[in-house]
Design a protein around this nucleic acid. Structure first.
Lengths: 356, 356
DNA sequence: AAGTGTGATGAAAGCGCTGTCAATGCTGGC
DNA sequence: GCCAGCATTGACAGCGCTTTCATCACACTT
């Protein structure tokens, strides 16, 4: 079974040339004569030769890989994000090496160190909350580093994201503007980004003169649809007159929506629901879920493009090291002016009425 | 920025020993004296040394990586699957290298070749429908290969899965046994596994003396919640007296459920819905969705364990090369005996009443 | 006819690490 | 007090490839 893997010189011998020539023929076909090229290609096919990327990378100091750290593979957000990275990087001949930090900075440190050991030509990490050690490792690696998902005040190198705080604030303000006052906040996991969305919520609420910590329903457990239902139920039981909820993500919002169905609470008649991320199901839910859309695909896409530009173009950084891609509130059926509407109609962020 | 990366001998110089000794101290601390170990560890920390995995892998012919091919990263099924692989393989010191075949055999071939170029110590591929070339590459790689998700008649090496056809048949029979007759089938993408689920559906239907090709609603587009809603709407408009639908996956089922809400169709009063995969949201939906649970986590977990055993234990294969992990129908609220029930009560597969 | 490119190929070195074997210093047994 | 035996460290080769430089043959110039 474990026969020795075919190497370059095996192919060379078969084609009657040296290994170097085969290497050239494979990497840069124009450098060898047409006749020889054909002979080599045949030898490659016959022997089922697959170049050893490790040896190649070691010799050329070019690994053709990009290291990526995401906090979760479960989350619908990162699915699109990773898809975008693959879409851009693979056609450019780069491999994407993904490691999962499980929303834990210890794991993130390990993931970064592990990836760096593979000598990627760039790193794209989600979030801005790396530990000092992580930051040092990334800085000293001497490769382009992109922090994504959120805008940072002190980026390691490049930073492309949105303000999670502002997005949370805008979502809350959107509900306030509709005339809601008893606006609950449902969130899980409590990773740094969720936290900043909650901060935004709090800010908007206190700006509106409302400061009720009891309106928060949170849990450190990872968010699921079920948890959304549970947290909503808890909140609903605790807060008389609850008229809206801002859910930290769409899974929680979906759970809240189902729980409303289950309890015969009309959405948006009795309660408005707004989610976060605008995952695919939002537009098909009944009622369709209002949500905050984050350009996660574009964020990853741009990160990948910038990284490619830097790698190809002698390491020069773009002028803008920090890019804020903004967010949009996608208004659908799950939010509406309550009976006794008093909202001002003022709008905080770009808004889209989704009628698709 | 691009200072030279620290190497083993840099560390050695700093600690006053040779590079080999450092290598040993790092890999096998017991082999060097305690005093030296401390000195080396300090040097490593001071220099921020990260071993070059490429060089290490090349020299030792042990890459500590496992190649994994999945058809999709978007699909909730593979999220759990990948999580299981990481859960088992990472603690064992292995990296998981994931490539996406996008449900296309051409891409799969490329993915397999690319992964093999990284010299993984084993390959775990989803599905059993590899091309001849893919099969050849995998066989000649001389490493353990596991095909998962589905049981195969002619496995490449190891095979752990379930019978998709039987699962589809059981889901359909479950509906038939409840007394349903006009059972629609909703599916998207039409990958090999969906196709075999449909086969199972057809088989069960013709066994029940029903053969109505117009009961199928399919599309080659990738499945989404929205598509579930659309296909259900189409089916509902076309089939008078439609009393149940078997959806090829839970996203489609969720879309169908929402569409029922939208149209005021009672579930399960008017129509029963059964999904496939039993994703997390099924149990929290309203009404909670009946679904076919596939042990996707266990499947990946076992694959990973077997692979580890083979790698560690001198390449010996387990006795059973083909393992069928079975499936369960998880009965919830979305399916019920129709008004004029006639079902026999016979049950085709292990069944679970989910009251969680 | 000698000089000068130009294109195609090969030889040698080395990427950073590990495997193997050799060398060294030390212990303890007789 | 000498040598076996062990623990510890180092030297050297080589993993499979790319890079660099040398070589060779062939045309084309003057």
């Amino acid at each position: 079974m474990t026969h020795k893997r075919t190497t370059l010189s095996d192919v060379g011998t078969r084609a009657g040339v040296s290994a170097v020539t085969v290497s050239r023929a494979l990497r840069n076909p124009g450098m060898v004569s047409a006749e020889l090229r054909v002979r080599i290609e045949r030898a490659v096919a016959e022997l089922g030769y697959i170049p050893n990327r490790l040896a190649s990378a070691l010799a050329s100091a070019r690994t053709q890989t990009i290291g990526v750290v995401v906090p979760s593979l479960t989350n619908g957000v990162f699915v699109d994000y990773l898809r975008a990275l693959h879409d851009v990087l693979n056609p450019a001949g780069f491999q994407v090496l993904v490691l999962n930090s499980r929303y834990a900075s210890g794991d993130e440190e390990k993931a970064i160190a592990t990836l760096l050991g593979q000598h990627p030509e760039a790193m794209i990490v989600a979030g801005i909350d790396q530990t000092d050690r992580s930051r040092r490792l990334l800085k000293e690696a001497g490769i382009p580093v992109v922090q994504t998902m959120e805008v940072a005040t002190d980026p390691i190198d490049i930073n492309i994201g949105v303000s999670q705080r502002e997005a949370g604030r805008a979502a809350t303000r959107f509900l306030l503007d509709l005339g809601h006052r008893r606006i609950g906040q449902v969130s899980a996991r409590l990773d740094p980004r969720s936290r900043r969305r909650i901060e935004g919520y709090r800010l908007a609420m206190s700006e509106a003169g409302i400061d009720s910590p009891e309106l928060l329903a949170t849990t450190p457990r990872p968010s699921t649809v079920r948890l959304g239902a549970e947290l909503f139920a808890e909140l609903h039981a605790r807060i008389p007159g609850l008229d809206a909820v801002f859910c930290c993500n769409d899974d929680l919002a979906l759970g809240a929506l189902f729980e409303c169905h289950r309890r015969g609470i009309s959405v948006p008649g009795d309660i408005s629901i707004i989610g976060f991320n605008d995952l695919e199901f939002c537009s098909s839910a009944y009622p369709a879920l209002t949500s905050v859309a984050i350009p996660r695909y574009e964020m990853a896409e741009q990160s990948a493009r910038i990284v490619l530009d830097i790698i190809r173009g002698s390491g020069e950084r773009p002028h803008e090291r920090r890019i804020d891609l903004g967010f949009r509130i996608v208004e659908r059926e799950s939010t509406r002016r309550p009976q006794a509407a008093t909202g001002s109609g003022r709008r905080a962020a770009e808004m889209v009425r989704d009628r698709s």
